[in-house]
Design a protein around this nucleic acid. Structure first.
Lengths: 163, 163
DNA sequence: ACCTACCGGTTGACGTGTCAATGATGCTAA
DNA sequence: TTAGCATCATTGACACGTCAACCGGTAGGT
């Protein structure tokens, strides 16, 4: 680097103009990509990506059922978020909740037939959208690079903690 | 199944397992990055990234003022979204709205002193967070690659249209 | 036994985003 | 002129997320 003082990364405090431009492109484009996926899924199946995550997890679970906390940590959500979301999904008939026999004060979340059906109908168009919007947009090298970038960013998020 | 004829990219319909894993890492990590930035900004300045975008645009505008529509297209928001957001920012005293002299039906959005001050206080910590969470996480090559990936993804979003 | 502390889950308040509908006002064409 | 029509902005209804408070129950320590 061009810095004289050997602080961390040369002691530079702020991003350069180029770095900032790339940052904005990157964060805005990935956000736009996410919301495009969201609206594609919505149009194809009337499910949100949140619904999809929940249905995917339940579909793969034994007995198409999971305890609420377990489900939350499996898909990486806070319990409160999941609880609100399950309420909305229950109103739409996609899942059911019932007292858990084994765990006191536990809630068992189960997939309904309507939920399973909605998930089956959503899978193919969703994966196709991922191919069209992500895989087809990039060269194989870029896909690999995207994976490495994600790994590096995740590592930095982890090392800096929740501060 | 559906593919006796060679479609594009060898007729492959769905992403491979590797592509899907990278996709998930990528989209989840970028989303997490965005929300970490959000909460850093919130903690440092009590502003959201939405607030920041609005304040940035107004700060750079002549007379610290802009017409609502102009502002919306400048930061790439729908007008309805902006209107809701401006309502909340106005309640907090960050901006003011008044009838526009030049354009009939136009609303002029102006930065208040409190808004300008909040923006000044937020800038440095925000840029520092971008450096820590993004720039410092990646090698220079990866930063360049991230820019190229963003460009390629954006191009694909544009070519596929709003469907 | 009692107090406390945690644990699983829910709830309410509020900020945020989208969509569709609504004013309010100019522009244009029959 | 007037009947449409586009434009600028707001509004209401709703989905989604986070935060903090809460409730009910189990477990430990005294």
């Amino acid at each position: 680097m061009t810095e004289a003082t050997p602080g961390r990364r040369g002691g530079r405090q702020l991003p350069t103009a180029d770095e900032l431009r790339i940052w904005r492109d990157f964060i805005e484009t990935t956000a736009a990509l996410g919301s495009r996926l969201e609206s594609r899924l919505q149009g194809d199946s009337s499910l949100s990506t949140g619904d999809y995550s929940v249905l995917l997890a339940l579909s793969e679970a034994e007995g198409q059922a999971m305890r609420s906390s377990e489900l939350a940590s499996h898909i990486g959500w806070e319990r409160s978020r999941l609880s609100h979301h399950l309420g909305r999904m229950e109103r739409r008939g996609l899942i059911r909740r019932q007292e858990c026999a084994t765990v006191p004060r536990g809630a068992e979340v189960l997939l309904t037939t309507a939920g399973a059906e909605a998930f089956r109908g959503a899978t193919f168009p969703h994966l196709r959208a991922i191919r069209e919007l992500f895989v087809d947009a990039l060269t194989p090298d870029q896909i690999v690079a995207a994976g490495e970038i994600a790994t590096a960013l995740r590592a930095q998020l982890d090392v800096l903690g929740k501060d």
